[in-house]
Design a protein around this nucleic acid. Structure first.
Lengths: 116, 116
DNA sequence: ACTCGATATTGACAACCATCGATATATCGC
DNA sequence: GCGATATATCGATGGTTGTCAATATCGAGT
């Protein structure tokens, strides 16, 4: 007769507010955090910004090294993280590797923050 | 007469696409990354979600420990990070500490991603 | 085939971070 | 004032991450 939402013992409930809607699951939080983590770095944000501001929303690695002022392996490393997270796509043409924004990826990553 | 955006030497420009608009500065990227980093953790995302789903968009620490299944010091630690980043506000009433969402903070954090 | 230039990968290292147990602080009821 | 309860802080620890130098890979031109 006591139960209904059987989450917590009512007798100890002196401070607690009930939930009025659903919360995200641990799995959803994990996935969402992984994407956010890929963006939560100043260098990677600048890389995304430069790619987004480039003609055709496309830039090769040689365009990106000098603006961020880091070594070439480090820039490659950040680009890999952004690509694996689904924010950039890579296409190699000749010796050069071109990175471009995946359409809608940034908006999709931001979406969960907006209906909170 | 050649200059206008004088960013790079044209003579070496074999692969490089020009910028068609402004990129974020290193400072902006740093600030933005700091805020994103506060959110880019599965536990903190769940804490924000629970607070947002609580009646009055307010929850005390005792509400948050059991759902995330971590120790009380760890939960306190995450709440501090979220508070210092401006996403939560703290108000102590009696023995209990109540955390609530700072209105508009999540939307403001997501905004830079939307006009990229 | 060989060399050169662009990019990716590897290995190492320092800095940072999430977590916990132990402890401190603060507030309430007696 | 004292014990009990809620929350915060401290110290330590294992894991993650950003960075670079060195090296590997791959394509283009000679």
């Amino acid at each position: 007769m006591v139960t209904m939402l059987e989450v917590r013992d009512v007798s100890t409930e002196a401070c607690c507010a009930p939930l009025v809607r659903e919360t995200i699951t641990a799995d959803e939080a994990e996935r969402f955090a992984r994407r956010l983590k890929a963006l939560a770095d100043p260098v990677r944000l600048r890389l995304v910004s430069i790619v987004a501001a480039s003609a055709g929303q496309e830039a090769c690695v040689c365009d990106l090294i000098e603006p961020v002022g880091l070594s070439q392996p480090t820039v490659s490393h950040h680009l890999k993280i952004l690509t694996e997270a689904g924010f950039l796509s890579r296409s190699k043409r000749g010796t050069w590797a071109y990175y471009r924004l995946v359409p809608g990826a940034l908006e999709a990553a931001a979406a969960p923050l907006l209906d909170a």
